[in-house]
Amino acid sequence: MIEMIIEQRRRSLGGGLEVGRVLPFAKRRMVGPFVFFDHMGPLDVAAGVDRTLDVRPHPHIGLSTVTYLFSGEIMHRDSVGSHQPIRSREVNWMTAGSGITHSERFEKARAVGDRLHGIQAWVALPVEAEETAPSFSHHAGDDLPQWNEAGVHGQLIAGEAYGLNAGVKTHSPLFYAHLDLQNGATAEVPEGYSERAIYIATGAVKVDGTRHEAGQMLVLGPGVSRLRADGSATVMVLGGEPLGERFLFWNFVSSSRERLDQAAADWKAGRMKLPDGDSDEFIPLPDTPPAPPPSMS
């Protein structure tokens, strides 16, 4: 059975770029370790677009960001020295741990135009890894196993599923895959994980005979094992083992509210190094402070 259907909520990031926010959701904060899920675009960008489209330097703690594109190109720079474009069907996996800053610039779009379309997810770190040293890795080719079978083209982005292992280093059990389905094709949904979901990026699918459309995340119960394309469709399947409660403020994730306070104070005071090669501007801390810790009684 489907436990919950989450509709994306569209919001502007500025410069004409819209995202569909899926996670966190008021009634479902996480799916396995996935604590954040944004559907970017699709957006056709004309050459010469101004820099308001860019995502200026900003900080993270306690998570890994996972950027995955269906089309387009984004230039990533961060405070551990990474300078890496990401293109379609590649993965930028950035582990913030104790703290990292990065920017996302649309340099190709500005030069020649582009069609931007993709997913950015955040994966919370287990408590013992929340303060790990920050790192960045880029993955393509054999690191991201692909397969074609009965009208389904699949690519494993991270974790273990479909008898395959991705080359991305993860800190807890999870799976994340991209499936393109022809009309009428059936795909298995990986089992063996406590929490699982399907996100329909384009088209429509049927699960247990009921049709669901683009922009919906289906949080699955233990009985669901497959989906069927109703027309051509692109879906993301994801899940893993839960990590326990996580608190979020702005770009920070932690099992401790006090740690969010510290991260906010560090950013406001300028104690977090800006990305190499992109340190002339940054996104300021929002005016809304982190929620206070619960009172002791």
Rank of each mutant, 00 (worst) to 15 (best):
M94E: 07
T101G: 01
V112L: 05
M296H: 12
H153D: 12
G81F: 15
F136R: 01
T170A: 04
A111V: 02
T65M: 02
G118L: 07
T101A: 15
S135K: 07
A264N: 03
S137L: 07
G192D: 05
L156N: 01
I157L: 12
N165A: 15
E104Q: 04
A177Y: 03
I5W: 03
A201S: 12
K273T: 14
M75N: 13
L179A: 10
G223F: 13
D278R: 01
S12H: 06
I6K: 03
V22A: 05
R226K: 13
V152A: 08
R87V: 10
E258V: 09
G72V: 10
R51H: 13
F136C: 01
V224W: 10
H153P: 00
F282I: 00
V91S: 12
P290G: 05
V189K: 06
R9N: 11
R105Q: 08
N148K: 15
H60L: 00
G244T: 10
R226D: 14
A166Y: 00
M217R: 04
Y193R: 02
I283G: 01
Y68T: 07
Q84T: 12
G215N: 02
N251V: 01
R21C: 13
G244A: 09
A47S: 14
P275Y: 06
G240N: 12
P222N: 15
I100K: 05
V253K: 05
S225M: 15
H39R: 13
L174I: 06
F34E: 09
R196F: 02
A233T: 08
T95L: 06
N92G: 11
P85V: 12
W122K: 06
R110G: 02
W93M: 08
D280G: 11
D230Q: 11
G113C: 07
M4T: 11
S255D: 09
H139V: 01
S79H: 13
G159D: 04
A140D: 09
F252C: 05
P134W: 03
P145I: 03
R259Y: 05
P275I: 03
H39L: 10
H212P: 04
T52K: 12
G81Y: 15
T95F: 14
V152W: 12
S256N: 11
L243F: 14
W147H: 04
A197C: 00
L23P: 08
V152Y: 11
M236V: 11
S232Y: 12
H153G: 03
T132H: 05
E130S: 03
G15D: 04
